[in-house]
């Protein structure tokens, strides 16, 4: 890995910073979807959520 010590250009650093922020944004959206689906399930099914034929 001869390139490990290569100094990143300003443009590359900026790109990495943007990509990192995009990744965080996607993570936040996914986490929000999990919460939303969980909440919808609980609200729509209520206590019935425990009633199921096995």
């Amino acid at each position: 890995m001869t390139n490990d010590n290569k100094v990143l250009t300003e443009q590359e650093q900026d790109f990495i910073k943007r990509r990192r922020r995009r990744s965080i944004a996607i993570a936040v959206v996914l986490a929000a979807l999990v919460v939303i689906f969980y909440a919808i399930t609980v609200v729509k099914l209520g206590p019935e959520i425990m009633v199921r034929d096995l």
């Binding site: 390139n3 290569k6 990143l8 250009t9 590359e12 790109f15 990495i16």
Partner: peptide
Amino acid sequence: MAYAENNSDTL
């Protein structure tokens, strides 16, 4: 590090 080898085109 892979991204260190990238030039601006591949970015």
